[in-house]
Amino acid sequence: MLDGLKDIIRKSSIHVCLVSTGGCNGCDIEVVALLSPRYDLEQYGIYVTNNPREADVVLVTGAVTEQWRDKLERIFAKVPDPKIVVAIGNCPLSGDVFNQEGGSVYAPVSDYIPVDAEVSGCPPRPTEILAAILSAGPDAIAAKGRQKV
């Protein structure tokens, strides 16, 4: 019963911290586009506040660059439990085109922090991000919440 109530609250109130770890920032602006009146992320109770201290979801966009290798873990550690990580775009998943000889990226993100959900595309359309977040995010966060007692 109590768990059920907690689940409901966790699912319907989500703060998001967008961490761009070095990409072409196409994914970042697609997340910004998600805030626009057409998509309106806020109506699902998802607030993009960019403050790791109050975040439930860390949206990672970008292959990990040199500077982010230690900082990403530190930011992740700042987020209070229960927390999930959603990787948006190909950069955090595979390093995209940067992950070849000459590029200085250290993808994938899952080497540094655990990734719970992923959206592929370069960049994904806002609706793809939206659908992925809505279908995976709340359930994942509720499941995470139950693990921690």
Partner: peptide, 8 residues
Amino acid sequence: RPGPPIIQ
């Protein structure tokens, strides 16, 4: 835009 629910 639609905005969050009132109880948000």
